[in-house]
Nucleic acid binder design. Sequence first.
RNA 1: GUGUCCAUAGUUCAGUUGGUUAGAACGCCAGGUUGUGGCCCUGGAGGUCGAGGGUUCAAGUCCCUCUGGACACCCCA
Length: 388
Amino acid sequence: MDIYNYKEIRTPVFEETSLFSRSIGELTDIVGKEMYSFTDRSGNSLTLKPEMTAAVTRSYIQHNLGEKQPLTKVYYISPAFRQERPQAGRLRQFHQFGAEAIGGPNPEIDAEIISLSAAIYKNFDITDFEIRINSVGCQKCRDKYKTVLKSFLSTIADKLSSDSQRRIDTNPIRVLDSKDENDIKLTIDAPLMKDYLCGDCKIHFEKLQTLLHTAGVDFKVDGRIVRGLDYYTKTAFEIISNELGAQDALTGGGRYDLLVSELGGKPTPSVGFAAGMERLLMVLQKRNKLNRTTPHPKLFIAAMDDKSRDRVFQEIFKLRNKGISCDSDLLYRSLKAQMREADRQQAEYVIVIGENEIKSNRVTIKAMQTGNQQEISLDELPDYLSGN
RNA sequence: GUGUCCAUAGUUCAGUUGGUUAGAACGCCAGGUUGUGGCCCUGGAGGUCGAGGGUUCAAGUCCCUCUGGACACCCCA
């Protein structure tokens, strides 16, 4: 994100429900049946955010971010919530990372967003994915296209799946996105949006493609991509993994030129993408590239007997206040149990403090991996540990 | 919202045609060694068998409902 000069933005986990129904669209699945909505004590309907773009846009408008600079480039990493039946790659609480470039109409910005989202996977050495792009046009050309498409679909309506039949009126473009084999066959010759773009949209889409070539981004034009959120205009794109199961979309995004003004801001053309953290993690896990590292204490101090515990406690905090990670037994366990604990915690060093040590102010420090022991003065301990 | 499968110790799982106090491995705790972990040996703790109802002399086992989970549809990140 830094290389592309995007700054982090964080928004609350919940928003007013109307924000999402207005932006994502009343008739979409997300708003229609997947939101975690609830009423607060003042009777307002709130919703755990199902995606980030609407929340970021709200924040952009509310804080007049557009006044600070004409193009606002932000990224986020955030939990998101959708009440669906979970399955591989689909959780009710999941995490999205993404970016939004708010304030510019030019295809260079679309290309930057697509390139940025792809770069993230390449950074993880993931190359087995496919970028699919499409243009869903602007309001003008989309309306025209919808009537053409509707009349085409009505000729085959009785043969389509029931889902698709229902969509002919509500959202005909989605019929082309059907995964029903029969539907796919029937719509193979259906008119596609990209062939009905108005001059402006067509130039934008073509320019985007040459820019992506320049940026070195491989992609495929797929005239059937429709995103499930109503606010998209012109560019729509997806990144699909070849290594995941049924839930194979790593990233989805596109341009939303009307959203800011629909939510009460000035007309502000924008582009963005959202990606699923867990899906990225799944790909990494499949390739055994998920090496989780848990921190280990540098030192474990064991108490010889209960009389020495006060001194152990003292030493522990002396070291912690110097920024050295260390731990000790808090359960009054036997020396053997303390050693076992130190081993379990994979402490790098162990010292035992008892009567002798308190008297002489000298301790034997043991390197747990090698078993080597060395006698040093307690005062040298911080230097000994940080020197290594 | 739909379909298929599943639910027994902290974890992974056994548990016979329904039949006494429900087992193993790993993990956990303690001891073997009264100043030193891992390996080994010995012992111990830990289960409302997901919940509720039903059938039966008897249910972890059969039936119903519910809840939760996995996968798929759908949808999407």
